[in-house]
Design a protein around this nucleic acid. Structure first.
Lengths: 208, 208, 208, 208
DNA sequence: TATGAATGAGGATTCATTCAT
DNA sequence: AATGAATGAATCCTCATTCAT
């Protein structure tokens, strides 16, 4: 039924609630969503939600955590696929593809993660998970900078630029109602590579 | 007091309300903000808000419109400053600086505009304004593509990538609590240029 | 301009306010009317109302009192016109015509007086005035009963029946949007007379 | 508990709310009543009201409809009791008794129906019901006029006179705090009969 | 004197949460 | 375990009243 479900296995309650909550929170924002709306979407009674989650806030943390973890899993899987001894370009490509894979597999999850102001309800665990993904990405950038393949500057900034570019892309696609094709992803990924690649022709300017 | 105020002139009610609403909406999201919170922030009574705005929704449209217009003004001003006969690189730089100038002058406004799900309350006028800014940017990209300075592909996609990169940058800075320095902006702008620049034939330079 | 105004004399503030308040209270009920609505109807500022009346409640008492007094005046005038030495039939006719004259001259006032639940805001003076009109009518009934022209029973009850019949008539006419013609009034007045007239011994006439 | 309840059956929520709303609306007018007042009277939470009724307006329609229907039922029952082949006098008596029976069984309902300005919130269904009761009464008058038992004139007017007289009676009784006794009703009903009866040729009796 | 902007208590309505079934 | 009726605090909004102009 969705990225988080397994065929032929009855979807457990918690998962159904998270699915519904993700859909509703994504569509209406945490603050704009109501628990009854989540219940209706899940096809269950309101009270049932409270059997799995202490309240709306914990529910939102559950949604956030599951999505963030899935995104991390996709990134890690994409990086693992190219191996750890490839060049920076391959690894950036892998990251970009990993993001695309997750965004394709769980568009609502991706969109939800991009909402601003999660701060109002995120707990320490959720924040820690968010931090881990940043750390992975920043480490990657540092590696690339060390090898001379990536441009210099604050790794966090480069990560933010690439990640932001990808988010911008998905947002635009969402606004026009289309999905990213394989070639769109590749074309944009190529562009994103140049965003962080050590500029060519720099030979003259950088080291005269 | 803020980007929208003029020294030594008493701030009109509407403006005070918009200022407060922007701050509260940005901090807590439209759905998470309450009208009393806005009133308290503005230092006025709740009822006073309803003298200037028909309701929370119209208030949010006012906030959105003012911010979007200011962003557009900054972009137009930055482009006007470099003239219309400059090369693509100069113009991309101008756009990037214009965004930075607006984000620096009105950080809350910039952040608010980046919120997702404005759709729940934006009216036709607001949507029209949003569209205008996109049109300006896309036209710029088309020009650059025609002259061969920018890479090919859907102009809207390139705009989304650049804009997204900038948003990612501001978001990251906000999360660590620092502001963008002039050199940060320039460094990131240089990176963003390569995001859209026509790639130098990679065969020779990259793998000689 | 209305029953309470005199030609060529500028309408004093208090009167304008009462006129507007009567119209609004009649149309929307005391509880459903707002002071700003009264102000707008009067073509004046809200604050101005509070220069003549301490509040909405006192305003309603003013409206009530003026209307009740006008009704009393009409009744007294009609009775005076037929003199005090006429028969019961003439006097009942006079009362009926007096009511009709007032209802014609000040339809809103008449309708307002018929609203239920004035009790929520009427003060002692207003209640006293209301009582006076009842006393006049009951005394009239008692006279007629003494002379043998009117049927027996609680005078207050007979008054209530006649008065109620008249109110029912005006209400029905209001609901269909027509006004009472002279002949309507007379026909209904004739019927009303039989309501209180001492019945002719039915044994002979009805079953000869 | 009231006219609408059945012994030994737990009063359903809707009914409890209607009972309370009737009491509060009757006492304070639709515009002057508040939903919390209704809730308190019903001994339930405010939110509970909104489970049975969409809002104050729909609640008022429910109250109106239930009362109007009950009044209609009483009239129909009273008419059925005398049969359709009786004379006009019997049928007028039946109507009068039916009104009295309803007013006795549900004084608040009767009083509420007499409020003016229901128009502000009544919906089409409620208005249709109101019309039905008028149609029944007018048809009765037309029958009586055809048979020569009732005086001529617009049937709606005669209905209005009789109905108005009854309303005047209940209003007066309410104001003095007493209830109508059987003999009061009969005495007043006799008077009301003469209100609509074809007058006996006045020439002989009045001026022999 | 007349005004109407400003106010905040109060009104209608919603919604997170509980708990008896 | 699951439900959804019931709740009342919290929300949006209105309006009687005040007061500086």
């Amino acid at each position: 039924m969705n990225i988080h479900s397994v065929p032929d296995v009855p979807v457990p309650m918690t998962s159904r609630v998270l699915d519904a909550a993700l859909a509703v929170f994504t569509e209406r924002t945490y603050g704009g969503a109501t628990v009854p709306q989540v219940a209706e979407r899940a096809g269950i009674g309101v009270g049932t939600i409270y059997r799995s989650f202490a309240g709306k806030e914990e529910l939102a943390n559950g949604v956030y955590r599951r999505a963030k973890q899935a995104m991390l899993d996709h990134l890690v899987a994409a990086l693992a696929a190219v191996g750890s001894d490839t060049g920076a370009r391959e690894r950036v490509r892998a990251v970009w593809s990993g993001l695309a894979a997750y965004a394709a597999a769980d568009p609502d999850g991706f969109a939800f993660l991009e909402h601003q102001q999660h701060a109002a309800y995120l707990d320490a665990d959720s924040l820690g998970l968010a931090r881990r993904i940043d750390v992975v990405a920043e480490e990657l950038v540092r590696d690339g900078q060390r090898s001379g393949d990536l441009r210099g500057g604050d790794p966090a900034m480069l990560v933010a630029l690439v990640f932001g570019a990808f988010v911008g892309l998905t947002k635009q696609r969402r606004s026009v109602g289309t999905t990213l094709s394989r070639s769109d992803v590749d074309a944009a990924g190529d562009a994103a590579w140049h965003l962080v690649a050590r500029p060519v022709t720099p030979t003259l300017e950088d080291h005269p």
